[in-house]
Simulated scan of single mutants.
Amino acid sequence: MKTIAALVLALASVGAQADVVITNTFNGTGIQPLGEPDTTTYGEVFTTPDAINTVLDSFSLILQSLNASTSQLYAGVATWVNGGAGTSLFTSSVFSGNFTDWTEVVIGTGGLSLTPGQQYVAFFSASGLFDGSNALVQVGLSDDANTLGMSWDNANGGSPLHPNWNGCQACSYQLAGTMEFSNPGNQVPEPGSMALLGLGLLGAAAARRRSPAKARVPEQV
């Protein structure tokens, strides 16, 4: 099977070493569709792993395109209150791609401080990016239960902070992906940001369906 990998776009000037990595292992299946004209947003509800490792450094979801169109998406993190997204805490840059094979898209948050016990949702959204072209992806699922469950918003272009998401919290579905957390005391300054030299595809390589390629999206600084 061919894989697609994107060059690293940028590195944040401040980083951290993850102390806790939470992984929902990809089971080779997906839920669909994400994007125009149907479902605006898919997200995974979660809490911090403990009261010490409260900084979310990165998270990922696994995508595969359903047609030949290029999808435009962005990622975010918001509080989760009464079955819906509340206050927005982080929004990534818009990223685009046609994911011909399952691809893990990794989002660097730059180090997002969270509150233990509070529920949050990490999501990918096409909100505000509908342009009349049906660019759809499916999102990888997991049989694990390391986070609280998947939710989605069928607002058909509405805000990812739509107050009444359709879907469920702590349901039988889990989105596949990884969350990396660290202790606030482990934030380590780096010498500086690396400039983007170019964007393109790396070579195609053989891979199994359960081992998606990774693409990294710029961290917000």
Rank of each mutant, 00 (worst) to 15 (best):
C171K: 04
A18C: 08
I107E: 00
G117A: 03
N183K: 10
G35C: 07
S13Q: 11
Q169F: 14
G140P: 03
I22L: 15
K2E: 10
F95P: 04
A207P: 01
A176Y: 05
N166S: 07
A51M: 03
L199N: 12
V45T: 14
S159Q: 08
N156L: 12
I31H: 08
L202E: 07
S58E: 06
N164Q: 10
D153Q: 09
G167W: 01
S172K: 01
W165D: 00
V77N: 02
T39V: 15
N24D: 15
A68H: 02
Q174R: 15
V106A: 11
M194T: 12
G86T: 09
I107Q: 08
T87N: 10
L129K: 02
C168D: 10
L66R: 04
N154Q: 13
G110H: 06
I31M: 10
T103E: 01
A145W: 05
L56R: 08
A5C: 10
T109Y: 04
Y74K: 13
Y173T: 09
F130K: 05
G200F: 08
Y74H: 15
N156P: 07
T41G: 03
S65M: 07
S182I: 00
N134G: 06
A68S: 14
D38Y: 05
V188F: 07
S71W: 03
N53R: 11
M179K: 00
